[in-house]
Amino acid sequence: MTVVVVTFPGSNCDRDCITAVVEGAHGAALRVFHKEHELPETTTAVILPGGFSFGDYLRCGAMAARSNLMPAIQRFVDAGGPVVGICNGFQILCEAGVLPGALLRNRDGRFHCEEVELEVSGDSPLLVAYQRNENIVLPIAHGEGNYFADDDTIALLERERRIAFRYVARDEQGHGAINGAKKAIAGVVGGPQRNVIGLMPHPERRSLDLHGADDGMPLLEALLSYSEHRRHS
């Protein structure tokens, strides 16, 4: 079984994700370039890593969402394959329409690199290794993480328990204090079998001993065990 980490031009967390899978979760990982048209046959899970794909010019994730490999990833999603999009990867999944909504520039117009407290709030096989409503701490590092979707979409996400993570610190309107994200949404669940998660925080940066905390590990472990489970069933 192989976790595929996709490298777009401008991806800069692809190696970090591979290290997290291999060194942290003792899985196998493979870098696949965006110009490919198919995922390797051995693919059991896909990570879209953080970075600035195509320079984030035009819009974050816009051009990556239209690259050669995306149709294959969409087919993988449709077949129930587990996919996690981190930071720029989340932006790409939204741009590709795999997940609803869009990520706008942070409300204060600045890049933020800091730890944030998050509430694990959604239902997904990729979240099972967390306690329900558990609070965790992960770092964010983004300039455009201000989640936006229309009210109907937000209501649907809430009703279907598809808000994967919420920022704990909120403003008076209940939006994320750090970036203005609507309803403090930091991550979203999608896919036909709730098999896709997009999130702004970086779980791979809390997955090794040297990080001093491992709040990102449950997500990566669930990604591996869910692929394992799918392979056997």
Binding site: R59, A62, E95
Partner: peptide, 9 residues
Amino acid sequence: DQLLRNPVI
């Protein structure tokens, strides 16, 4: 519609 704008926003 295909690239220059994101119809969500």
